[in-house]
Simulated scan of single mutants.
Amino acid sequence: MTQQKKTIPSMVKDPKLIEKRREQIIEAAVGLFISKGFHKTTTREISRASGFSIGTLYEYIESKEDVLYLVCDAIHHEVEAGLEAVLVETKNGADKLRAAINGFFHVMDKLQDRVLLIYQEIKSLPREAMRYVMAKEEQITSIFEEILSCGMEDGSLRIQESAVKLMAHNIVVLGEMWAFRRWSLKKYYSLEHYIDIQTSLILRELTTD
């Protein structure tokens, strides 16, 4: 079942102003959560870094957990947008997969600290918000499932239907590994080299009998 997006109440009625202010809050909170951690960061520090008073902050959110939820949702939105952008002009399933791997891994590099933040702090979210964030993770994985199924149908990829979901998860984990283990991997590989090697290994598995 698709998880419903959490509605965060606001005292402000202008949707554009809400979006603008929440973007400021997200950017300020991300830096603080990464440097200090979620629990050690105060809402007063978030308001100060956002450029407005604590009273103004509470016109747009109700709690610090709301801020973390907004951060997680914004990160997933950017990941999905990055994937969709690279799939526009691809032809068959194999081409889509190459483009998606390249796009996803680049997004993981761009958002590496934020991706790590989600996995470190997701447990701090209320249960329903956590379920929504986890469902968004599944949604990203499902994009790769659809690409793999497309490749099966057009004959450009060879994979048993029962293995599609597992392979999709494998690809997502390989992309996230660049974020989680960058401290070690960057000693030996550039991002492009890492993408080339992983893409080659994945496609070799999916294009040979």
Rank of each mutant, 00 (worst) to 15 (best):
L57Q: 09
A99F: 08
Q24D: 11
V172C: 10
S142N: 14
H169K: 15
F38I: 07
I195D: 02
L174A: 13
K16I: 03
G93H: 11
F33Y: 14
L57I: 08
K91V: 08
L174W: 06
E84D: 11
E161P: 00
E138A: 15
M108L: 07
K136F: 00
V107G: 00
T56A: 12
V164M: 01
T208E: 15
L117M: 15
Q198N: 13
A100F: 06
E80P: 00
S162T: 06
S200C: 07
R181P: 00
K91S: 08
K123T: 08
G37D: 05
F180Y: 14
A179N: 04
K6I: 13
Q198C: 05
T2V: 06
R204L: 10
I18G: 02
K123R: 14
L68Q: 01
E62G: 12
Y188Q: 14
A74E: 10
D66E: 07
I147H: 07
T56V: 14
I25K: 12
E65A: 12
T7R: 13
L125K: 10
I46T: 03
D196G: 06
E153H: 05
V172I: 14
M177F: 05
Y58P: 02
A74P: 01
T42W: 02
D73S: 12
E45V: 02
Q24Y: 04
K16W: 03
T199K: 11
S63W: 03
E161Q: 14
L148Y: 09
R114F: 02
T207F: 09
I140Y: 03
A29W: 01
E153R: 12
G175L: 10
V107H: 00
Q4Y: 04
I46P: 02
M167Y: 10
I25C: 11
M167F: 12
Y132C: 01
K110E: 13
E146L: 08
E128D: 10
F52V: 02
M177H: 09
K165E: 14
A99G: 07
M152F: 00
V172E: 06
S142C: 03
I140L: 12
R44D: 07
T199I: 05
R48G: 00
T41H: 07
R21P: 00
D154I: 10
L174D: 01
A74R: 11
G51K: 09
C150A: 13
I101K: 09
E205D: 02
T42N: 03
K187L: 11
R131K: 13
M152S: 05
C72V: 05
F33K: 01
S162Y: 01
G93F: 09
L83I: 13
A168L: 06
P9V: 01
I147W: 09
G93I: 08
H106C: 05
H193R: 15
A129G: 05
K96M: 08
K20H: 12
R158K: 13
K187A: 06
E78L: 08
E146H: 09
L97A: 07
R114P: 00
G103K: 11
R181M: 12
E146S: 15
L125S: 12
Y188S: 14
A81N: 07
L191R: 08
R44K: 11
P9T: 01
E80L: 13
E59N: 14
G103A: 12
S10L: 06
Y188H: 15
